[in-house]
């Protein structure tokens, strides 16, 4: 991704000139506060949005220039884990994982069954195949969604906030799964998250995004040693710093009608 800019509203760009490189086979995290445009980056990669400037390339192909068919062909090689799993609520866990396989292949039922159970086994939920999404805990739903994301053996998996809203144990499980699947299946992974500790444990490289720009990047060790104020604020979780506590507002006194007389 080179110099990509994007805004839902042209006057208020969400991303301004993002430069990012994700090497094959690595786990890369994109970190940043809520609402800084992380999810937008994933949508650019998946071709759901087009950048207004710059380019987005996946595996050498320029994503915004792909037609509908090309884009669909590309997406078959991309798995995506959505923020809260986005499981199809009207299908069982089994059918959810089988869905991409059924849609894109003509495999017969016994083969689909084997594939689905293998994927579910990889995330430790083979026993939950017949449950429905509303019967799963948040962590389990996330793992099912992960199994679905890797159902077609993608080369690139995008994770949108895989850790959001999980208890520490589930969080550790999902984190380890991401790493293991990445290494075992030779996938490239991009994780969008704001969970610093978990990501520092599992990723190869981190990008910090703030206000639509990349403000810092480095390997986990570099990040830990970094003295950059933004990185420090993020890693140490301080309330105020380069990322201001206050949303831009009128002066305090003015809002409350207090006037120095």
């Amino acid at each position: 991704m080179a110099g990509a800019s994007f805004g839902y509203d042209p006057r208020r760009p969400v991303l301004r000139g993002i430069d990012m490189l994700v090497p094959r086979g690595r786990v890369v995290a994109i970190m940043g506060g809520s609402g800084c445009g992380k999810t937008t980056i994933l949508r650019l990669v998946g071709g759901q949005l087009r950048p207004q400037e710059g380019s987005v390339r996946v595996d050498g192909q320029s994503v915004p220039d792909l037609g509908r068919d090309g884009l669909f062909a590309l997406r078959r090689r991309i798995g995506m884990l959505f923020q809260f799993g986005a499981l199809f609520t009207d299908m069982s866990v089994y059918e959810n994982v089988a869905f991409p396989i059924r849609e894109h292949t003509d495999l017969d039922e016994s083969l689909i069954r084997d594939l689905v159970l293998m994927k579910l086994h990889a995330v430790g939920l083979r026993g939950a195949a017949q449950l429905y999404p509303n019967e799963l805990s948040g962590g389990m739903a996330r793992r099912v969604a992960l199994a679905r994301a890797i159902a077609l053996d993608p080369t690139l998996v995008l994770y949108d906030e895989p850790f959001a809203g999980l208890d520490p144990i589930s969080l550790g499980v999902v984190g380890q799964l991401i790493r293991q699947l990445n290494d075992a299946l030779g996938i490239t992974s991009v994780i969008v998250t704001h969970d610093v500790y978990e990501s520092l444990k599992i990723v190869d490289y981190l990008y910090f995004v703030s206000a639509g720009r990349i403000v810092a990047h480095g390997t986990p060790d570099e990040v830990r040693r970094s003295t950059d104020p933004f990185v420090r604020q993020f890693v140490d979780g301080e309330p105020d710093g380069p990322v201001a506590f206050h949303y831009p507002a009128r002066p305090y006194a003015e809002d409350f009608g207090i006037r120095a007389s």
């Binding site: 759901q48 884009l71 986005a86 199809f88 991409p100 849609e103």
Partner: peptide, 22 residues
């Protein structure tokens, strides 16, 4: 609407399945 809210439509799109068709 709920499928859209819970990103199921987006998920489908990302799985290269057109939600209009499916």
């Amino acid at each position: 609407g709920l499928m859209k809210t819970t990103e199921q439509l987006s998920a489908m799109e990302m799985m290269a399945v057109d939600p209009l068709a499916r």
